[in-house]
Design a protein around this nucleic acid. Structure first.
Lengths: 164, 164
DNA sequence: GCTAGACCTTGTAGCGACTACAGGGTCAAG
DNA sequence: CTTGACCCTGTAGTCGCTACAAGGTCTAGC
């Protein structure tokens, strides 16, 4: 089957399939004399595995690991279990963060009736003014994994203070 | 103050500040004769506004709009209110999607005790086998907004079927 | 055999919101 | 005048695709 047929069979776009091949998530298929990719049933199975894993929110690297684990049928499946449970934990953190965020925003929105002028808008005030205004139980940095976004954490060396 | 001092004052990294300047979220500051950026208190206020909005998960474009709205003190603040409420809705969708995902994964994890071998791992089976295995109440595609990932939706023209 | 046109090929650039370098220049304390 | 913390610009990388451009291949139907 061609790349289009594989796409139909799995619900994955052709460009995504080529992308998976480029990052070596899918093995290189055979080619016709004209250079067309020719896929076989095992490609369908592998790509379906990938799609389902991705739909569950697993990262490409996690999928890669799962595929490698799955290839050795005698290996204990504890690692598989671990991978999935870790991902559940990640999701829990993410969900919790978003819920905090949501209530902070809700508090913000509740403080504004929307009928006034910008000059007396509580939302804009809260964003402009002091830190505590909308700091519920510790919001900050809920979107994604937030890898080291806090530049203020690192405190390198005591330097003279410039005209601050 | 220099870019480093502004970073300290706001908790935003210097590289991010330069990035904000490049995308015109922060105005270009004055410069020393040597080319150093020189910031003033209004930059601190604006950058704090930006940081807080970002921490609440608002997109750069939303922040841009908020800043522009905030600059006209006589304008009605209905649009501000709308922007924030829309974002709350987005969050609701996101949270819901992640929760569905979580329960699908939990079901998966519950089916595996982690003590067996890969060959009898229910998790890997579920990822490999039929569609219904782990389709709880309609999972698919919860991460982010999932913009048109389903390639199988478009069904262009009836073409001859190749050797499929 | 030939044409039409659906399908395929490679390569590159873009998305959002940064982050991380490399290779150099500036600044102020001592 | 040296030291070295700090700053500059520019470019490339992150993640997981998606979209395009310019061209080549394939087969149904004539």
């Amino acid at each position: 089957m061609t790349i289009g047929a594989l796409g139909q069979a799995t619900g994955v776009g052709a460009e995504t399939i080529r992308y998976y091949e480029r990052i070596e998530l899918l093995p290189q298929p055979a080619r016709t004399s004209g250079g067309y990719r020719v896929y076989r049933p095992e490609h369908v199975r592998r790509l379906n595995f990938i799609r389902r894993s991705r739909e569950l929110g697993l990262s490409i690297d996690a999928v890669r690991e799962l595929l490698s684990l799955a290839s050795d049928r005698l290996r204990p499946c504890a690692r598989v279990d671990r991978l999935v449970r870790d991902h559940i934990h990640d999701l829990d953190h993410k969900i919790e963060g978003l819920q905090k965020l949501r209530s902070a925003l809700q508090r913000l929105a509740d403080s504004c009736r929307g009928g006034g002028r910008v000059s007396e808008c509580r939302i804009l005030e809260a964003l402009q003014e002091a830190e505590e205004a909308l700091a519920g139980p510790d919001v900050e940095c809920a979107e994604e994994d937030c890898a080291g976004r806090r530049a203020s954490d690192k405190q390198p060396k005591p330097r003279r203070e410039r005209r601050a």
